[in-house]
């Protein structure tokens, strides 16, 4: 489980920090049964939703939103937003985290982790709306807002992951004649991978959730469906949008858990 990796072996003070684990109900400890049953549950919810909608008379306003074309298009937009922002976050935060943990920059870590904690209080909708007002609407501001909002967990976990590597392991590597770069690539990074992955999974979950708000800056996504229902006051539309969004987020988190398990270096 993501949380355990960063809490284990550290002072209780670390439990205080909002970490990866926050979004980790189905983490690495997932049994085979849970791994197989989880997608079945998601599929079951979708089938139940479909049957419920079929049993209802939809008026023309509802039909315009609750149909396969509209929903699939919004789903694809949602996935694009999530994928683009998560990849950008990894590309920025991991190298930056490595840079900030090299000798010389270490004193930045504590204030940065403090900022990461308070950074959660920054309202995602505020960032999104400000970008729309200052800059433009559409896909780009949405991705920038998502990146700004989810970069801290990855940065924080990269730094924590690298710093928790046992000093004596690093010294042993140096003693064997490895250069600093080799120590980083062959010792520090592999040992930090589980913690970094936990951070990436947190960012992924934040992104898939925050992408729901992209509708407010005309960037589409499944939030479009919910918002349509709210604006037109159509209960069925709200339920369809909300359930689909929730299932998508839980499914992405589930996939993140599987990938986390797969990518964890053997021997850890």
């Amino acid at each position: 489980m993501a949380v355990d990796t960063s809490v284990a072996g550290s002072a209780p003070a670390d439990i205080t920090a909002p970490t990866a684990q926050d979004a980790d109900p189905l983490g690495g400890g997932m049994s085979l049964r849970a791994k197989l049953a989880t997608p079945a549950v998601f599929a079951g919810v979708c089938v139940a939703l479909y049957a419920w909608v079929q049993g209802r008379e939809l008026d023309s306003i509802e039909q315009r939103v609750v149909n396969a074309d509209f929903i699939v298009e919004r789903l694809l937009q949602h996935l694009q937003l999530t994928a683009a922002s998560t990849l950008l976050v990894i590309a920025i935060a991991v190298p930056l985290g490595i840079l900030l943990t090299r000798a010389g920059a270490r004193s930045i870590t504590p204030p940065l982790i403090g900022a990461a904690n308070i950074g959660q209080a920054v309202p995602s909708i505020g960032v999104l709306v400000l970008l729309a007002l200052w800059w433009t609407i559409g896909f780009r501001p949405a991705v920038v807002a998502l990146v700004a909002y989810s970069i801290l967990p990855v940065l924080r976990n990269t730094m924590v992951g690298l710093q928790q590597v046992d000093r004596s392991t690093i010294d042993a590597g140096r003693g064997m004649g490895m250069t600093k770069r080799q120590v980083l690539r062959r010792i520090e990074l592999p040992l930090a991978v589980p913690v970094i992955l936990a951070g990436v999974r947190t960012a992924l979950v934040i992104n898939v959730g925050t992408a729901t708000l992209a509708t407010f800056v005309n960037a589409g996504g499944l939030g479009d469906v919910i918002n349509n229902g709210l604006v037109q006051n159509r209960f069925t539309v709200i339920v369809v949008g909300s359930v689909l969004t929730a299932v998508l987020a839980l499914f992405i988190d589930y996939l993140g858990g599987l990938v986390e398990d797969l990518l964890r270096p053997k021997g850890l």
Binding site: D22, A23, D24, P25, L26, V205, V208, G209, T210, A211, T212, L213, G223, I226, G229, L230, F235, I238, V239, G241, S242, V243, T245, A246, A249, L250, D253
Partner: peptide, 22 residues
């Protein structure tokens, strides 16, 4: 208990607000 609480936190807020209107 932890898994259930984790599921709540994973559900996007906009969707959860929407579901609670009913």
């Amino acid at each position: 208990a932890l898994a259930v609480a984790g599921i709540f936190l994973t559900i996007p807020s906009f969707a959860l607000f929407g579901l609670l209107i009913a």
